[in-house]
């Protein structure tokens, strides 16, 4: 964490990707305090643009989705849907002058399994590169 500026990251993650458990989630919450909100989802395709928008509207400075690698979705096309929805939502927020980087997507890789903690760190780093959201200030 850098300095006094506080950011909230909402991190939705496909339960298929990081070998995550409630433990790991709690460890992360402990590490980042209230600055990270973690939401496991059964499939990233479950997330609609409204989930991303609501998070930005209600509390988050930045929203990230972690999906499973292409071709591995248990529901066949959940991650594909997620990708398109992220793009669509980015267009929406861009149209009201919000940085598109406030919605991020990380595609987990099968060959190189990364822990939730690593993903969270990467997302948090990118979050901190952005100024606090004008929505909450």
């Amino acid at each position: 964490m850098t300095g006094e500026q506080k950011r909230t990251l909402a991190l939705y993650y496909c339960q298929n990707v990081p070998a995550s458990g409630e433990r790991e989630r709690q460890d992360l919450e402990e590490k980042y305090g209230g600055n990270i909100r973690l939401f496991p989802v059964p499939c990233s395709g479950r997330l609609e643009p409204i989930h991303l928008l609501l998070a930005l509207e209600e509390f988050a400075d930045v929203v990230y989705i972690i999906t499973c690698p292409e071709g591995t979705c248990r529901y066949s096309e959940g991650n594909k849907r997620a990708k398109k929805r992220v793009e669509m939502t980015r267009t929406i927020i861009a149209s009201i002058g919000l940085e598109v980087e406030r919605i991020g997507m990380i595609i987990g890789s099968k060959e190189n399994p990364i822990s939730l903690a690593d993903h969270a760190r990467a997302a948090m780093e990118r979050t901190l590169r952005l100024p606090p959201s004008p929505v909450h200030n």
Binding site: P49, I50, L53, E57, I92, I96, G97, L98, P134, V135
Partner: peptide, 17 residues
């Protein structure tokens, strides 16, 4: 219903900004 919720949320975000 879905698009309506999205538009409303977007407008609220814009207004908050």
């Amino acid at each position: 219903e879905k698009e309506t919720a999205m538009l409303a949320s977007t407008l609220r975000i814009a207004a908050k900004m």
